[in-house]
Simulated assay, not measured.
Amino acid sequence: MRLFSKPMRAAAAALLLLTGAAAALSAARPFRPKPVVIAYVGGFRGLIPDPASIAVEKLTHINYAFVDVQRGEAWLTNLATDTVNFRHLNALKSRNPDLKILISIGGWSWSENFSDAVLTDAGRKLFAHTSVDIIRKYGLDGVDIDWEYPGVAGEEGNVFRPEDKQNYTLMFQAIRASLDSLEKETGVKKLLTTAVGGGKYFVEHTEMAEAAKYLDFVNIMSYDYKTNPNGIAGHHTNLFGSTDNPEESSAHRSVGLFLDAGVPAEKIVMGIAFYGRGWKVGSDTARGLNRKATGGYRGGGYAFIKDSLPAKGFERHWDKRAKAPYLWHPGQQVFISFDDERSVKEKCRYVKKHDLAGVMFWEYSSDPKGYLLDAINKAF
């Protein structure tokens, strides 16, 4: 009995050839994992408001901010609320079983004790042990270090010293060793990541090529490029520079600095600001862009910027060169820099084009309506 006619056999053969060619092409292409989307979720104010509303289906990681450093140990300063927050965040895995939850240690306000904590081998082991003990106790997935900043001043009063450069690397070595021990206990992969400043100062005071060997992701804080209320009003989270100055801060320049410092592209995560920064300026020239400021102005979270400020006389403009939006109020002479859906799309396109690991953002509660997270989700 003939199962197939001659034309059918010919069609089947052609289909097999096409399938084989597609398989060969697929095999030749390097595997590119889907970009990560890391949300910093703040617990430093107390209980996370309405944690069930977090759109975890659109996230790959949550970095819980922050855990303090006290007496050389990773320390839950807000123990009563932190433990409740951990329980609520873990419950979100019922909606996204692949979600990873990390503790983020430090931040702007709690980085003053890093230098002392990791000064000696014994100190590093204690800090590593207490960091990992938190994720062991509460069933979390990893540790994120947000030291602002090794080797240079961050917040006024922070301790820093030249030895931070080597101790920064040795700290990660110690934490990775403790995480490896936990992995053997649980049989589950544990993550080690870090948030880094986006400027040249950071790579000059660290050994990023060595540190990266222990890290899963390097989260570049590609925002807060301009913060001085009496400095220059300009973009604080721009993708590219807006001037001819090759030293102008931008996410593109930050990525280049860390690539040149030896961090692999597949470990680099680009930062997105879910908030704005504002300045009052003395002149309406260029709608305030790159003009001398006379004082600061509250920018607010993105949902507030999008929903409230246009009705108050603010005009939105787009800087084609920087791939960044800004608001200008001609009457009050106020300039506000921020990320919006268009700039987020540009950043995500850049991440995919340059084979970076993905994006992260600070901070989830600044955009409760999910405008920017939706834009990230659509871009990826």
Rank of each mutant, 00 (worst) to 15 (best):
A286K: 15
S249M: 13
D144A: 00
D216Q: 04
R29T: 12
Y364V: 08
K58D: 13
D164R: 02
T120H: 14
V152Y: 05
E163S: 13
A174G: 00
I336Q: 09
K306S: 12
S254H: 07
R277E: 10
K226A: 13
A52V: 07
L356W: 15
R287M: 14
V132S: 06
R87E: 15
L126I: 11
H205Y: 08
D284F: 11
V67Q: 09
G282M: 12
G313M: 09
G106S: 04
L76Q: 08
S366T: 05
V84D: 01
P7R: 02
G276I: 04
K58T: 03
N377F: 14
L76C: 04
D98S: 14
F86C: 06
H235L: 09
I38R: 08
R342P: 00
K320D: 14
F217Q: 14
A286M: 12
G241Y: 01
K353L: 11
Q166K: 14
N377T: 15
E346V: 05
Q173R: 13
A212D: 03
Y225P: 03
V196W: 03
K34N: 12
A265G: 03
L102Q: 13
T169F: 12
S115L: 06
Y326N: 05
K369Q: 15
N290E: 15
K200N: 05
P33G: 08
L89Q: 06
A23H: 11
K125L: 06
G299I: 04
F127G: 01
G256S: 11
F4E: 13
S131N: 05
Y214D: 11
E266I: 02
K137A: 12
L126P: 01
N230E: 14
L191W: 15
V196M: 07
A174K: 12
Y40L: 09
I38Q: 05
V41P: 01
V56I: 10
G299W: 07
G43D: 05
L170Q: 08
G151Y: 06
T206R: 08
A24S: 10
S111N: 07
D224A: 10
V344T: 10
L239Q: 11
T194R: 06
P325K: 10
S94V: 09
P49R: 08
G72E: 01
V69Q: 10
G187T: 09
D141Q: 08
R45C: 00
K58W: 07
T81Q: 09
G46R: 07
T169D: 01
S254L: 04
M360A: 13
I48V: 13
S26C: 12
R253M: 03
W279F: 02
T285G: 00
I48H: 07
G123F: 10
W147S: 02
V67I: 14
G370F: 01
H205L: 06
S242W: 09
S249D: 13
H205M: 12
A177V: 00
K323Y: 02
R136Y: 07
P30I: 03
Y297I: 08
G271L: 05
